[in-house]
């Protein structure tokens, strides 16, 4: 006889409603994500062919509707930006975690890194345009875009590297020092190798940020879609990345064919970002295990 039981299960409508809201919110997040990814991949994947990836682009020539130049430009920007920014960012993280004593300078560095990560990319774009393109006379060029992006991703690199350097057990350092190694030797020979997966995560996260960036590159690296001729020529010339190509083709599209190019570009971008995301996840997992 359940009714005579001491334990009465109360119905609490408020509780149920709140629980429902919590689950609904999580569902909204997942459904939105799946909706966006599904929509773009569904419409874009059919148009990703080898020809699409390997031919140059031209607005007039119907035979040339590929994204090869954009892929090359994106790669240039990713590589050069990382070459500039990664050494600076990793060195900053080393200084902050291994050398710095708490003081005004360290506070200033931390504060400015935080400020830097909050500045919107359009401001970086304006700044890069006035300083690198005009004052340093680089015009709109890939190099100007790289220099702008290098500042843009600095906080990402510093913060993630810092975290992984801090996670290296102090006993490793002490052990090495007890064996008579100098500080530099300890940092470069013990701490940095131990934190390597974390450092690589930082680099991959930064790559994702660069691949996805558009507003900061709009005025600095420009919108030219010419096929790159040589490395040195290209980095001093204007070139659009995949994101800017998507932006430009989507805005100018006036026929279903043109829209398909935009769909396919968006799908390529999503796949790239997805892969980078997985890579970062894998790296940080090996780091936690190690």
């Amino acid at each position: 006889m359940p009714s005579s039981s001491l334990y009465v299960k109360h119905r609490r409508p408020k509780d149920t409603a709140l629980k429902f809201l919590i689950n609904a919110a999580a569902a909204v997040c997942v459904v939105t994500l799946l909706g966006i990814i599904g929509y773009i991949l569904f419409n874009g994947i059919p148009y990703i062919t080898w020809k699409f990836i390997s031919t140059p682009y031209s607005e007039t020539n119907d035979e040339w509707k590929g994204i090869l130049p954009m892929i090359i430009n994106t790669m240039y920007i990713v590589v050069i930006t990382l070459l500039i920014s990664a050494p600076v960012g990793i060195s900053s993280a080393i200084y902050l975690t291994q050398y710095a004593k708490q003081g005004r300078l360290v506070k200033a560095i931390r504060f400015t890194t935080e400020i830097l990560s909050g500045i919107p990319s359009i401001i970086f774009g304006l700044f890069g345009y006035t300083v690198f393109c005009i004052l340093f006379r680089l015009q709109t060029s890939i190099l100007a875009g790289c220099l702008t992006m290098a500042i843009c991703i600095l906080p990402t690199v510093i913060r993630t590297t810092e975290e992984s350097l801090l996670a290296v057990p102090g006993s490793y350092k002490e052990g090495a020092m007890a064996l008579g190694a100098g500080k530099l030797r300890v940092v470069l020979g013990i701490v940095l190798p131990c934190a390597m997966p974390g450092v690589l995560t930082a680099v991959v996260l930064a790559m994702g940020r660069i691949v996805g960036e558009s507003a900061a590159l709009l005025f600095t690296s420009g919108l030219s879609y010419n096929m790159p001729k040589g490395f040195w020529e290209q980095i001093f010339a204007s070139g659009r990345t995949l994101t800017l190509h998507l932006y430009q083709t989507a805005r100018e599209a006036n026929s279903p064919d043109a829209m398909n190019i935009a769909y396919a570009t968006a799908a390529v971008l999503l796949v790239l970002v997805f892969l980078l995301n997985r890579l970062a996840g894998l790296l940080s997992r090996t780091f936690r295990k190690g």
Binding site: T32, V211, L270, N277
Partner: peptide
């Protein structure tokens, strides 16, 4: 991971969608 991926989607793709 879904939320993380949401953060990684480029803003142009959001705009396009």
């Amino acid at each position: 991971p879904a939320v993380e991926l949401l953060a990684g989607i480029p803003s142009v793709v959001y705009g396009f969608f």
